[in-house]
Design a protein around this nucleic acid. Structure first.
Lengths: 452, 452
DNA sequence: GGGTATTTGTCCGTATGTATG
DNA sequence: TCATACATACGGACAAATACC
């Protein structure tokens, strides 16, 4: 085989792998490579082109991350099916149909994920394997969650997030909400005073409301909640989302928060939503690892694995664990046993970490692409500020419109996005749900909407 | 992954590779990295720490030279086998196990079912089919529960239990507990006064406690809760389990309860636990069907299908439904989407009703066999009282032992069973989990335990 | 149809060129 | 000139999927 259209220029300044990437990408986009078609194997192509296997591998990987092609281990690389259909891909279905309006064509809502890049095949395989274990489906699950999963999570959360937890400290649940209910039940009467960073975490607020636990929202400086406000609030429980903020909480403030907890006997609930998804910045370990005695750690997976898998976990510190054990039997496990066991195997085989690496690369590409496109099209008319871990970009538009108007106008042009709270002229673009190749058209649409 | 103990300080004057070298060296010396343990690969560590591969490589090389670690080409770096002071592994905290006790040979616990009679084959088939529907696993579920399942349940609950519900009134959840939390959130402040029949329904009591809703337990006559006590309690919500009692609630009392609800604006929560499993007596339809405006109906499946499938549903009357709709988006669905869809198909094909017929026959046989065997072996030493719908037999043993002692002694003989609350010398035998052919040996074992 | 050889993606340590003080 | 850090490129080893006998 010669693959002459892929011939590379060794004298060019552009790296070999980049040349190859570009050529294949072009071939896919122009339809020269049909959907489902098999690409030459890494070895064959590297021999044909007289380059190293790594060169080909690097190019393939990048294409893979961006969704042009798909890897099937030990079988080959294949051109993605239907990448460029303009319709909705399965898996990008709106959560709720909030107020109807013009049809949403580009969804920058932060509750979406572009599921084109999940490895549902592998997940299915694991579920199937669990199904074949008769004892797994024919018996009740453990109240606290399957031991196998708790063991896998202890190891994973340690290596991925620096969480120090034994399997016995981990409680599984069908997402964050059931776990929070459980946590509320563990609080002593005098502890039922909760503070949060800012309104907006509706799922949590609802739980506290249901448990009739009063919630205070604390004013913040740029580093997050201040100790002064925290102490003034008289709260005994502070719920923080260190990874889901515009700015990370610097170490100094973290230490202060932990000191507050130890000094006052307070409880720090650390919601590590998407904590492992730092795709660009350097990793910041969970606070739980710094002082596990006063911290409750909350982790989840729906953004990492598949939207349909709703499993979360909570790491309880010793004092709360004691209270939990007394009443564990009164809480039924909410997460599906089969999915728990499948997830345990998935993690144990290191698949989750692999998936994570893949997602990090993908989101790095997406954020770069979005940033570049915005800069290019709007120039000095916008300011950008990328949230380092979450999958959102904070955009300040300097065209005189306020946040509401920006959102409204975008909406009439078929682009869904969110207002930034407390920031005039700011909107938030969640880019997880936008396929790479739709970034440019989506931004173009925004330009139409905003620059009249 | 994270390797938080290796996190580097980019602002430090010390070179990155030197920092890394020092940290790993310290970890090896302190024994945190055991001899022979594999270090993270250069690639992974460089990605995790967001430094270049060379940085990691330089550190590794230096460690290699100094004999701390060893390179094994194409395999990785490993900690040198050498004598190091042993230390505790990080993050491994001893797990607490519940009291062991003698091995359980015969399990009369009421949370047990005899798995030989579940049709797991068919269930597996349905799950597999759902797995093959890509859109099913690659998208978020509906907050209220999958429409397909709610439609199937509306039809099933009507035909099986006389429940009058449209799919829009049905809310799915991972068992009764999450649904009760949700229900608590729907109550107005003045409605937060709950009455129950008697202590013992721990799962529900715990939910009310978590929501700080006071619960009154009402004295009963033989037909259940009396209206007089109900009115005296000033409760606004009454939780009844009509099918999970020793005696059914007669129609007259049912009407009285419904009238109470209508007269006072009260809410009747009907927990129809195992309601469809009347294997001996004539079926009694759900109260919900008699006056759906004031009744919340709760149904579940774990006893019908497979213990591992934890799906329940709640039928909300119009007034509560309105409140629910307003905040539905704030509650995430807890039940597994895949299992919801599999269950929908299962029900739609009429499998659930078939399974029900099978179980009714089976449990009729089991209860007869158990009753007969007990009478035969113990003669006049015991009194039996069979709960008409539930899968339990209330046994009064007249050998002078109290409930605690009966349970304890049985346990040492490898038989697990439960105390009957508030009844001296009584124990509860749940027979769902004992295969028919093991009834006789199990009872013989009890005889050994109790008749010394 | 069951064992064996081959193909293939993937992981790995390594080497080299280059930019920046 | 040298130390540091990064980007690119190389080929060996491995296990799983597949094709072949």
């Amino acid at each position: 085989m010669l693959y002459d259209y892929l011939l590379l220029d060794h004298k060019s300044k552009e790296p070999l792998y980049a040349q190859l990437y570009g050529k294949i990408k072009a071939a896919v986009e122009k339809g020269h490579l049909a959907a489902g078609e098999k690409l030459p194997s890494i070895r064959h192509l590297s021999e044909s082109l007289r380059v190293s296997r790594t060169t080909v591998e690097t190019a393939y990987q990048q294409l893979c991350v961006e969704g042009y092609i798909q890897s099937s281990p030990q079988r080959g690389y294949f051109v993605q099916e239907a990448v460029h259909t303009s319709g909705h891909k399965p898996g990008v279905i709106p959560q709720i149909t909030d107020e109807p309006g013009p049809k949403v064509r580009y969804n920058f809502g932060s509750d979406w994920v572009d599921s084109a890049h999940t490895d549902s095949k592998l997940w299915k395989k694991h579920v199937r394997q669990v199904l074949n274990r008769q004892e797994a489906i024919a018996s009740y699950g453990e109240h606290q969650g399957e031991t196998a999963l708790r063991e896998a999570l202890a190891a994973y959360s340690h290596s991925a997030r620096g969480v120090a937890a034994s399997p016995g400290q981990i409680v599984i649940g069908a997402g964050t909400q059931p776990l929070l209910y459980l946590l509320c039940g563990l609080l002593k009467p005098e502890e039922r005073r909760v503070a949060m960073e800012a309104p907006g975490f509706q799922q949590a607020e609802q739980v506290f409301a249901d448990c009739s636990i009063p919630v205070r929202f604390l004013p913040q400086d740029q580093d997050g909640v201040t100790i002064r406000e925290l102490e003034a609030s008289m709260a005994k429980v502070l719920l923080v989302s260190p990874s889901n903020r515009l700015q990370i909480i610097p170490m100094a403030r973290r230490v202060q928060l932990l000191q507050w907890a130890e000094r006052t006997g307070g409880i720090l609930v650390e919601d590590d939503y998407n904590g492992e998804l730092r795709y660009r910045a350097r990793p910041v370990p969970a606070m739980q690892g710094m002082a596990s005695e006063r911290v409750v750690y909350l982790g989840s997976f729906s953004k990492l694995l598949l939207p349909s898998v709703r499993i979360g976990y909570m790491v309880l510190p010793e004092p709360l664990l004691k209270r939990y054990r007394k009443r564990a039997a009164r809480y039924n496990q909410t997460a599906s046993k089969i999915e728990q066991l499948a997830l345990a195997d998935y993690i144990r085989e290191g698949r989750l970490e692999k998936q994570l690496r893949r997602l990090r690369k993908l989101y790095a590409v997406k954020s770069t692409r979005l940033t570049e496109t915005l800069r290019q099209m709007f120039g000095p008319l916008i300011d950008l500020s990328l949230q380092e871990t979450s999958l959102r970009l904070l955009v300040t538009v300097k065209n005189g419109m306020d946040s509401r108007e920006l959102v409204q106008r975008a909406r009439t042009y078929g682009v869904r996005l969110q207002e930034a709270r407390n920031r005039e002229g700011c909107v938030v673009l969640g880019f997880a749900g936008i396929p790479v190749e739709e970034m440019a058209p989506a931004v173009a649409r925004l330009k139409e909407a905003w620059l009249v």
